[in-house]
Simulated assay, not measured.
Amino acid sequence: MPAMLEVMSPNARLEQLAQGFRWAEGPVADPITGDILFSDVPTNTVYRWRESDGLSVYLKPSGYTGLYPDNNLQEGANGLMFNANKQLVLAQHGDRRLAMLQEASSAIPQYVTLASHYQDKLFNSPNDVVQHSGGDYYFTDPPYGLKGADQSAQKQQDVNGIYRVNAAGQVTLLASNLTRPNGLAFSPDERWLYVANSDPASATWWRYPVLADGTLGDAKLFFDATATAKTVAGLPDGLKVLPSGIVLATGPGGVWVFTPEAEHLGTLLTGVPAANVALSQDASWLYITASQYLLRIALVK
């Protein structure tokens, strides 16, 4: 479609930058160096990919330091982001918390807990995180890090929620209507919060109005890919929004491209299930974690 060519050039080629991971996730561009950090969730590792010298281990452990070992899959961080102060924030599956990296250069990385409980109960396994311009973090909390998921004896939250945590550490449950809330991203004007639901029975993307007090209004279905997910590998997972408002969302088959009005412009096929995406600092590259690979493709600037 012509509109798709305004996002990706017909001459752009998908590049394979690194491979050999068990489940690559959560890519993010370092705002200082431009390096790409991403998680290998099952191996409890965050890697760094640098244009000049390729791949290296950045953090290990990345998300499980032994805090809650019972029925814990001991997985690492999933979603990563840099906050307004250029500090790395991690959605840690294994430690069941939202955390900030305090020290990366020591032999064992040190983390500060931003939030680990809601109403005195542990989170399930925080999955992805974004920051509002006002400073609050918004994150999703499906049960993927627990053995048995919803049936785990260690699951303390009754819902798989979307939460907010403010600078004082106060946690608010914003929404509980999704079975498997996963990737999330704000629209450029922050009027909307997009959230993926990674459930084969409801492979959907949703859009919530962000109210003046930072809470969320009623969910509105953005796009339903359940029928496609029955025949094509992959589910709605991570997503990013371009400054133009175009939504780039991993889903069945690869990366789905939507207008803000939910028109599906096309899908970038990745060949294996795609987990998440990240934009370079100047939005000229799209980085994709897909199964065992780190990929990238040039975007139209």
Results as ranks from 00 to 15, higher is better:
D136Q: 10
I162Q: 10
D136P: 01
L279N: 03
K155L: 06
F21R: 04
S291I: 03
Q156W: 01
G245F: 08
E103I: 08
S106K: 01
S280K: 06
Q154D: 08
D237A: 12
D95E: 11
A196V: 13
T65N: 01
T267D: 08
W205L: 15
S62I: 01
W206A: 13
D141A: 10
A168R: 15
A104K: 05
L286D: 02
L55Q: 07
A175G: 06
G54S: 06
L211K: 12
Y118C: 06
G169W: 10
S244Y: 09
I36V: 12
D213Y: 07
L88H: 01
D35C: 07
Y68Q: 14
F186L: 06
S125H: 06
K147I: 00
I297F: 06
L90M: 07
M100R: 15
A24D: 00
G148K: 10
M100W: 04
D213N: 14
D218L: 11
Q87G: 09
G66P: 08
L239R: 14
L101H: 00
S284Q: 10
S291F: 13
I297G: 03
D141N: 15
S56L: 00
N127D: 01
L55R: 04
A229V: 14
S105E: 08
P27I: 03
E6V: 04
E51F: 05
V57I: 14
K60H: 03
S152Y: 00
W49R: 05
F223A: 15
N83H: 12
T250Y: 11
F21Y: 05
A153Y: 00
L122W: 06
T259Q: 06
D136S: 15
V277T: 15
D40Y: 07
D150W: 12
R96K: 15
I288C: 11
R207T: 09
A107G: 14
A153K: 15
M8A: 09
V112D: 06
L37F: 08
N177K: 13
Q156K: 05
Y208C: 12
P69W: 03
N166H: 03
T289H: 02
Y58S: 00
A229E: 13
D141V: 09
V277G: 10
I36Y: 03
M81R: 12
Q156D: 09
G251L: 10
P10Q: 10
M4H: 13
P188H: 05
N177V: 09
F82H: 03
L178N: 05
F223R: 01
N276F: 11
K121A: 13
L90K: 04
T228V: 14
R191T: 15
I297R: 04
G20I: 08
R164G: 11
P236E: 08
S280D: 00
H264Y: 00
I36R: 04
F258P: 04
P109A: 00
